[in-house]
Design a protein around this nucleic acid. Sequence first.
RNA 1: GGGCGGAUAGCUCAGCAGGCAGAGCAUCCCGCUUACACCGGGAAGGUCAGGCGUUCAAAUCGCCUUCCGCCUACCA
Length: 940
Amino acid sequence: MIQDAPRSDTTRFDKPYSHRDVEERWYRHWLDRGYFAADGQSTNPKRFSIVIPPPNITGSLHLGHALNNTLQDILVRWKRMQEYNTLWLPGTDHAGIATQNVVERQLKSEGSHREALGREKFIQRIWRWREESGRTIITQLKRLGASCDWNRERFTLDEGLSVAVREVFVRLHQEGLIYRGERLINWCPRCETALSDIEVEHEEIKGTMYYIKYPLADDPDQFLTVATTRPETMLGDTAVAVHPEDPRYNKLIGKKVLLPLTSRTIPVVGDPILVDREFGTGAVKITPGHDFNDEKAGQRHRLGTISLFDHRGRMDPPALSEREAKVLPQLTEQLGYKPVQEARKLIVQWLEQKGCLIKVEDHRHTIGKCYRCKTVVEPYRSPQWFVKVNDPKNSLAAPAIDAVRDGRIRLIPESWKNNYFGWLENIQDWCISRQIWWGHQIPAWYCKRCDENVFKITGTITVIGINAKPIVQIDAPQKCERCGSTDLIQDPDVLDTWFSSALWPFSTLGWPKKTRELEIFYPTSALVTSFDILFFWVARMIMMGLHFMKDVPFRDVYIHALVRDAEGQKMSKSKGNVIDPLAIMEKYGTDALRFTLASMASPGRDIKLSEERIEGYRNFANKIWNAARFLLMNCPSNAKTYLGNPLPDPATLSLADRWILSRLQRVVASVNHQLDDYRFDGASRELYQFLWHEFCDWYLELIKPTLYGTDAAAAKRTRTVAIHVFETVLRLLHPFMPFITEELYQMITPVEGSITVAPFPMENTAWMNEAVEQECESFQRVVEGIREMRGVHGIPFSKKLSVVVRVANPVVEHYLENNRPMITALAGLSALEIGPHVRQPVNAFTGPIIFPGGHAGEVFIPLPDAIYRAKEITKKEKRLKELTAQLALEEKKLSNPDFAAKAPPEILENTKLRRQELRLEHETLSAALQRLREMSGGTA
RNA sequence: GGGCGGAUAGCUCAGCAGGCAGAGCAUCCCGCUUACACCGGGAAGGUCAGGCGUUCAAAUCGCCUUCCGCCUACCA
């Protein structure tokens, strides 16, 4: 049910802004009114769409999410206000391994495990968890103000998305781009599943290099020494390689060596690819079952493969036995089911005992770890499903490269292109099967009768041999097409979560159905994401989008940085330096957090976030709030009466009014341009500067005399302008600070509705006025000159001054004369004399003022105190020195004939003008300094 | 080993289609001027990492060096 718009209680318009009740109140209102809903039937040609990078259901909001979604929300709110048909499609990702890990931990704490439950019950259990806890992050995104179309929220395991996944799988399989293969893959022994190459994190560690003696079979007194960091895998060696051109060893090629601790002999082979003569001993053991390079070498030399470990990374007794590795029986007994680390210790002990360990050295090298659980991964030979990414006849990668190369997709910042190309050009086939239960089960079935002999069942693990013939189709087949048996079994593996995320831009819009949404919103307009998933996600979406939609999934990819702590450290739970965005929002307000993130989102640079920074923008929110208070307090008949009407004729407006309207246009133009360029930082800086330092610091001060004055009509005109400008800025600021802007908008606008759907300001050059800005700047310089004098000498504002301003140029004189009341009020004057030939007061200090256009002026301030005088002399001498240096620089430029000849005329003019200004200031200042020295009678 | 990014005020960062070095925070001084002390006014603070070049002109463009990040690679 739609409720009335919440009312802001203006009687409780407290001095400091309090975000607490405001945020929740307005967010609920926006949802109630359905402002975030995209129009799925619209014919509006202006459309803007973004799909959210789906957060994990296991996640809770961290600053990376906060940044990512703030930026998306800024774009989306901006476009929505520009009357685009705007869709921001939200959702979550089932995060196969991570989610399964969470629930497995729960089971463990209950003394159970997934095998005890069985697949079906276990999955039910995860769904239950998902209903209870898996929506946390969605709630938190709402808290951040995300204006997603929540009615279209998707989940990668939704029925619709699952259909898309099966459709893609089957079609790629038909095209030969998905296949089963048995080879080494990265295996996490803790998660007990395969991982793709990029799910392995590489880390350099201080390890150990072991040098092991391999005696010749013919002549056990001679031996080869091999170096290895993984002695435990030596039991699976099937050869030793040397470089064919290495004179030390090449005569041994073709001979055999006795593999220590076993009863096997293995050949010595020559391999120029594997062996680097310079490294280690120049002799390398080949273990095709446990090393990717050795696997390739093994293929080159047609060597056998021995897999020593089981699926949990433990020594597998059958593999060690007489059948395969032929390990000494006593050692076999000791090694059975020992994990890698323990096995290594045993092997080293045994080698030492047998006199085969020559030496041990420290050695830095990299190891791979599971990106989910940080366990050391094992290369593990097993049958898996792969996507063939770079098939020369039907490549997925090549079109993805082209799309970026020819600009159909823009990466912002562009510097990511090289990374992107580099990765796609060297891409390997993508292992997509995972040996877990939570996810999209692979749509492949096997006939138990035909494939009976290829099933290998170890405990609860069913491994389907590589020779099995899968029936791949979208829905379960009724019977085996070969033998007619109905005894079928579905492939137990599930797909990599990223496989389903790769389809996200179109699966969420209804694909494979041909929906109106796809027509309207695909390709999406922009993708906002962090660089760390450029390969995981972005590249794969581009490949899948191009392959299945025949069009790019998005036009622009805005790649933002990581959020770090104030010291530049990556935030992590273990370091304890995590800033919780929810705590920040609670303390400083969501708007402050959002504005901070936006203002720090400079392309290509990580964000070092500190609380002081956020506090600063909380203060900004307060400043806005108090500007509103001021305006409302000075609008006796309520602000709303001023907004319905058009602006008064410029001719009737005060200088201040025309000035702020002119400045406003500059900001409007700039914010739009900056957002066009994804310069969130530039746009927020612009807004901050204008609102605080121009609107509040100058304009509101300038209009006070009018508001408090006796000319009611003038006051009314000024109120109209002030409210107009303020309301415009609120709309400009809304995408950045949605809550406070809505709260204030509702207070001042007579229109029923919401700022979320109010028009975004567009540049209106009619209000830009150079002359007005010059006039305003002229008297501002006088005010600043006097304020500086006050500041330097510590003269309080309460002490009124009598000031004389000498100005030769009649136009400038006119400007100042026009604004006499402003100068008097803002500089705190008791008297003000302006003119070309004004009398110079006795005992007055003076300061040069250079007006716009290079006109000279001077202010005289009576300060008959010797202490002031000494200070003044020091200060002026310093300034004079600066001026002399700068002037010399400009003179040098201008005296260079090449400069006049080659510099563009505009620069030449500017330089001349600058020289003129410097000369004038120098002249005035020198004279003033001279007078000061005379006044002080040589004592200073 | 390759690749990318960064080095500008005490701190965090803009500025880099060459043309006067900027902001915010922090510091110091003054100020209860009736929107705001989550404030106002002012000041101080810089070898633009270093070097060489291109140019009338370089923080900005090119090359080299140093130091910090990150990505990537099979050196056993």
